[in-house]
Simulated scan of single mutants.
Amino acid sequence: MRQSPVLTEIAAAIPNLRKSEVKVAEYVLKAPEQVMHMRIVDLAQEAQVSEPTIVRFCRGIGCNGFQEFKVRIAQEMAVANNIGQFAIAEDDSIEDICDKIADTTIQRLHQVKSQLKTKQVAQAANAISAARRVEFYGFGASGAVATDAQHKFFRLQVATAAYSDPHMQSMSAVTLGEDDVVVAISQSGRTKDLLHTVQLAQQHGAQVVSLAPANTPLSLAADLPIHINIEEDTEQFTPMTSRIAHLMIIDMLAVAVTQRRGPEFAEHLNAIKRSIKSLRLEN
């Protein structure tokens, strides 16, 4: 069984924890580097809970006890320190820049894979497969993902469109119905205009699939959320690794929908390949 990054798992579990366990979770998330060097009695004292509460909390997130919990935190902190969000220095060479971006992207994709709930992907793929129409909504870098998704699903004989303008999204949302699906894509999960159009689509009966971090307004509003938890420094750079992670999930959905079409659908895909062959130069 795959293990999710423990800090991400703790954050996602908070709404379902007891009040005493929430105290433990909040302290751990605030000071993970200190916690991995603490004794159980120290953490109990700092979080103002009992030692049995600490043990119950650890087991609740899949650890056998406090020692295993500390090991998982130490492992996660080591990865974060070695291959974290890249920081570009003024004297970095082009080789340094390439290494930092590539290594960070690879690490983040592994992170998304480790915490991905495949049941969420399956439910979303089922909804898309059965939909009369599928609309993809996103802004900025997420708008580029929406456009890529529209291109992929168009080839699968899905009636689809992608919109990155709030007015177009609103007009699209009110034309949808019970047989339609919206896929809302957001790195932050907190974009006001996107939340507005999602609510409009739901008011008219459409199902909403979200690609966003867990416990954000968008993922909580969605009918079928797919949680993608990536923290990025967006003050200096356009979201990079989250965009690539979203593209990866779109590919998973496209392949899952293709599989649901059955083996006879392969001829349709081959026909598309043949249709564009003449547009390419021969070797």
Rank of each mutant, 00 (worst) to 15 (best):
Q67F: 11
I54S: 02
T53S: 14
A159N: 15
I94T: 12
E95N: 10
K70C: 12
G65P: 11
V49G: 07
Q107S: 14
V112F: 01
G65T: 11
D91Y: 01
S164C: 13
Q75S: 05
V41E: 15
F153V: 04
Q67Y: 01
F86E: 04
A131C: 03
E68P: 01
Q48I: 02
K119N: 12
A141K: 03
F154D: 09
F66M: 01
L109S: 00
C98Y: 08
F154M: 11
E76K: 08
D103P: 01
Q169D: 08
L156N: 05
S93V: 04
A74Q: 00
V41M: 07
A124D: 09
A144C: 05
R133V: 14
Q48W: 06
L43Q: 07
Q107T: 14
A127L: 00
R155Y: 09
A87H: 14
A161N: 15
G65H: 09
A47P: 02
F69R: 00
H167Y: 12
S164E: 01
V112H: 05
A102S: 14
M77P: 07
D42R: 04
L116N: 08
E46A: 13
H167S: 14
K119G: 01
G84M: 01
S129F: 10
A80H: 00
F136Q: 09
A162G: 13
D42N: 11
A131S: 13
R133F: 14
Q150Y: 14
V112Q: 05
D96P: 10
L116C: 07
F69N: 10
V121R: 09
L43G: 06
E76G: 03
